[in-house]
Amino acid sequence: MKLTLKVWRQKNGSTPGELKTYPADHVSPDMSFLEMLDEVNQALIMQGEDPIAFDHDCREGICGMCSLMINGVAHGPKEAITTCQLHMRSFKDGETITIEPWRAKPFPIIKDLVVDRESFDRIIQAGGFISASTGSAPDGNAIPVAKPDADKSMDAAACIGCGACAAACPNGSAMLFTAAKVAHLGHLPQGQAERHQRVVNMVATQDAEGFGNCTNIGECAAVCPKEISLDTIAMLNRDLVIAALKGIEPVVK
């Protein structure tokens, strides 16, 4: 296959970037999208040019590191997979592919297609955990969890923190990411003690980081490689209302 790539190149966060065009002439349909970029980079290096910087690690769809906007769609045209799981047989010979980084104010560009997602870590720091210091746990079977609750918790816990939701959202909202954690912990008996303080703190931090508000557009769930449901956002909003009724204020460090 022969393809034309339009790739966002930006030297660093303080320099303006632009789309540059590169040919990709030796593409096999068996290649993954990132392997295609590897080949382009090998050629760029041999031509004395700077290779395209992009984030990736596990290359099997679980670490959440890869993050490309492909033809305007986060993680590309296939549903429920990450960029690293996308294969070139999903494209046509002769096609032009536009590749851009995640774009959201709290994800500043570091270089080319690499962005800084530490804002997600700070949302977790605000309350995305159960305070259970090592050694304080009772026997595992002392806390029964109804199977439907465990399953719902696991559905939400599948979030890989890639940021596609915020990048796809016209408002730049991180609501699906935050809600996934709220639902993961909120569906479990272990998560009840901190449930309402957690949601208040995480939402306050999300706002402080500069993520936009959720207006139920649903782009986030449409691009989510782990198919996190919009139901998690409904659960977050419900918990938020209860927290407000209880008069719980955010405690943000």
Partner: peptide, 22 residues
């Protein structure tokens, strides 16, 4: 055995049987 206890307390959503046990 302590690891499982600790992970459950942290909220790791291990697979459960219908009775709620691991």
């Amino acid at each position: 055995v302590n690891i499982i206890d600790q992970c459950v307390a942290q909220g790791v959503p291990f697979a459960r049987e219908y009775g709620g046990y691991l």
